[in-house]
């Protein structure tokens, strides 16, 4: 087998590389820059070229990192390694490993729908496929992006007519920019939290087209914010006080919000089921498109998805069952 599941993460022994290691290693390959995939402390990193700036911003400017263009390949100890768009967030990739005719793809996190910002997901044929399963239940069916955008805009305009400011939570890397592109226009006032503004800047340097908007400051006058939509990181949504903004409503844009219980539990005024992960249908489609004979299922509803695939006569198992550490999820 080309890969194995160890306590430090997915390991390719032949090439001596770990993919998204959870602990410091000597050679780390990174699929994307979310914190549960990109950890500090490894001696050297390899990632897709588009992700370099983002990775440096997230884990440190001084890291030793090599960038490879999408589709290009490098060879380590006879293992051909290449990066292919995963459609998850800007600069995200699936990692393809090929050795003596055997192909393995580690997909990281992915989504199939094109979001207008992220490089579009590319199906890659392989023998072994490692898939995520964050939303692997048939109850997760995303509405098309334009429909979600419409309902967010509806919520916004309803609030504007009531004199409310809108505060919407979105993961600061990926989801926030996706929202910004969808909501920003010359007539509409969108502001972003400073941590999102920093990432906007980094993404622009990496060549992404991100609209220029103002940073939301605590010191801002309520009048200045009349009718505005403020995008903030999820943590800020629950931790920061927005009482100065009264009257206002808050919302969260996340796949979890597609279920009423999670919406109510967190008691946001509104929730929008917008995700950077594949839904049930797309997870199934992705697995089929790879033509893989063997599928490993990682973080999320691993038991469910592995069992489901097995019943569909696909040889699937939970990645490393016990040996792989349970990672704290960060939905995007």
């Amino acid at each position: 087998m080309l890969i194995e599941f160890t306590s430090s993460g997915i390991f390719c022994r032949t090439a001596g590389v770990y993919i998204d290691p959870s602990k410091p290693v000597s050679k780390a390959i990174i699929t994307h820059s979310h914190s549960d995939h990109a950890k500090r402390g490894s001696s050297s990193y390899m990632t897709c070229k588009k992700n370099i700036q983002i990775l440096r911003h997230r884990i440190g400017n001084s890291i030793d990192v090599t960038g490879i263009d999408y589709g290009d390949a490098v060879s380590i100890n006879g293992v051909k390694i290449s990066f292919h768009p995963a459609g998850h967030i800007p600069g995200s990739s699936q990692v393809r490993l090929e050795y003596k005719g055997e192909v393995c793809v580690v997909s990281g996190d992915y989504k199939l729908e094109y979001d207008g910002l992220t490089e579009e997901y590319e199906p890659v044929k392989c023998n072994t496929f490692v898939t995520e399963s964050t939303f692997a239940l048939p109850v997760f069916k995303w509405d098309p992006q334009n429909e979600i955008a419409e309902s967010i805009k509806k919520w916004w305009s309803r609030n504007k007519s009531k004199g409310n400011v809108c505060v919407i939570g979105a993961y600061s890397l990926g989801k926030a920019q996706r929202l910004l592109k969808l909501l920003h226009s010359d007539e509409e006032r969108v502001l972003v939290h400073s941590s999102i503004q920093q990432i906007n800047h980094v993404l622009r340097l990496a060549g992404y087209d991100i609209p220029e908007v103002k940073t939301y400051e605590q010191s801002m006058n309520r009048n200045e914010l009349e009718g505005a939509m403020i995008i903030v990181p999820p943590a800020s949504l629950s931790a920061d006080s927005f009482s100065k903004l009264e009257p206002y409503e808050n919302a969260f844009a996340s796949g979890w919000m597609a279920v009423r219980g999670s919406r109510r539990w967190q008691s946001f005024d509104a929730g929008f089921g917008m995700s950077d992960h594949a839904d049930w249908k797309d997870l199934n489609e992705a697995v089929l498109m790879t033509g893989a004979e063997k599928v490993f299922v990682t973080h999320g509803f691993t038991e469910v998805f592995a069992r489901w695939l097995k019943e569909k006569n696909i040889d699937a198992e939970i990645a490393g069952e016990k040996s792989l550490q349970v990672r704290t999820d960060s939905d995007s």
Binding site: L137, P138, V139, A258, V259, R260, G261
Partner: peptide, 16 residues
């Protein structure tokens, strides 16, 4: 499994 996660029968049916 879906019902156990969603926690509401009517909603689970609506979603599947």
């Amino acid at each position: 499994e879906s019902y156990a996660f969603v926690g509401d029968l009517a909603e689970t049916i609506s979603l599947v």
